[in-house]
Amino acid sequence: MTRSRHDAGHTRNFDDTVAWLATQTSKTAATALMRIAWRTVGSIIARVWADTGGTVDQLAGLSRIGIDEVSYRRGHLYLMVVVDHDTGRLVWAGKGQTKATLQSFFTALGPQRCAQITHVSADSAKYIADVVALNCPAAVQVADPFHVVKWANDALGELRLQAWREAKTALRANPRRRGRPAASDPPHLGAERVQALTRVRYSLWKNPENLTERQQAKLEWLAVNDTRLYRAYLLKEGLRLVFKLPAHEAPDALDAWCRSAAASRIPHMVDLQRTVRRQREPIIAAITHGLSNGRTESVNTKIRLRTRMAFGFKDPDALIALLMLTLGGHRPTLPGRT
């Protein structure tokens, strides 16, 4: 019989088998097969990762990294994760979304290896930019295109909601408009407009090349009946297309977009262009270097899946151990197998 780890009530082979099951199968399968509680699985995973993490250097050879936050439980509880752009591995995870949490990663990395970091992609949160600038002053900070376009989608969504509320208020003030409007009725009154502004939401979000005929028709209705919202939609699309331009064309195109957004006099778009101007350098860097948080978002999707699976762990350290074993490039193997 193999010896057990320190403070463990099971043998190493048992621990390793449970860890393998936890990274390969469902929660129910692992607990039913091994006849142990899910909390016990969490303790075992933490022990196995402590052994595995002690024999490998997860932070070796890093040069281009992505930093992001991912929620692991309700109540605004987050993990900070760092992904290696070159390998796609999760290299580090910590509890919280604070400067102190991120600083602990760079402290573990050390000054010498911090100096080897050339590119850092993130969601443009100021505290992340500040910590990166402090520890890796020579690194190029890259804004994630997905998040930049999301800013535009969020602004567009708020504007659509405002237009819907205005139409709803107008409808309540004119009860006779609740039926089908007469031909002489202005388009800003009536239940038809309220319904149209409700149904156009997904058409505004989707890329034009992915629109169905019905969704395209909804945008055509918008172009006639709500020119302000339609102009905001065109500005959103214009910002998205900037990221598809060649690097030498992008700076001028982004500046032109900012001027158009400012001249639109649509408050949501004016505020958006101010944010884009503040983030101009990281946005241009993303286009120039062809870098995004795509790999990080892919890892985050897997993290969310594992988070749902790990529900019931009493300590987030067990979740972090599970994530590192699963996504860190060092999955456990079955005992006796090569």
Rank of each mutant, 00 (worst) to 15 (best):
W205P: 01
A247T: 10
M309S: 14
L62D: 00
R331L: 14
L109W: 05
L272G: 01
A155R: 11
R3M: 07
A22P: 02
W49I: 00
W164F: 15
V41C: 04
P137A: 13
A152R: 03
R74G: 10
R193T: 13
A133K: 10
L77F: 08
E281T: 15
Q24P: 06
M34S: 08
A139H: 12
D317C: 03
A253K: 08
Q103K: 09
L33Y: 12
A286S: 15
V48Y: 14
P246Q: 05
R160S: 09
P246R: 06
V142R: 02
V120E: 00
C136P: 03
V91C: 11
P246E: 03
S26R: 04
A115Q: 08
Y202C: 03
K302N: 10
V41H: 05
A60E: 07
S43W: 10
G312E: 14
G42I: 09
R331K: 11
N210C: 12
N13V: 12
R165V: 07
L229I: 05
I266L: 08
G190L: 03
L211V: 06
R39P: 04
H248P: 04
D57T: 10
R201H: 14
W151E: 02
R74Q: 14
A250E: 02
G94C: 06
T101V: 07
Q141T: 02
G110L: 08
D57R: 11
D317H: 13
S63V: 10
T11S: 15
R274W: 07
G312N: 11
R35H: 14
V142W: 02
N207M: 13
F313S: 05
T52G: 04
D252V: 09
Q112S: 12
P335S: 09
N207S: 07
H188P: 00
I287K: 02
A138G: 09
E158F: 03
E220G: 12
T17K: 11
R214A: 15
V132P: 02
P145L: 01
E297Y: 01
L234K: 09
I36L: 09
W20M: 10
T98V: 03
D154H: 07
R180Y: 14
T227G: 12
D144N: 00
L62E: 00
L90N: 03
G61T: 02
S4N: 12
Q103V: 03
S26T: 13
E209F: 03
Y233T: 10
I36M: 05
M1D: 08
D86G: 13
I65W: 05
I117N: 04
E220C: 15
P208V: 09
P187M: 06
W92L: 12
P145I: 03
S104H: 07
P187C: 04
L219A: 15
T25A: 13
R240A: 15
L59T: 11
A37L: 09
A232Q: 06
T333F: 06
R89A: 08
A30F: 01
H119M: 02
P145M: 02
I128N: 01
V276P: 02
L134T: 13
I36Q: 01
E158K: 15
V132H: 04
A100P: 04
F311Y: 10
W205S: 06
Y72M: 07
M324Q: 09
P282C: 04
V41T: 13
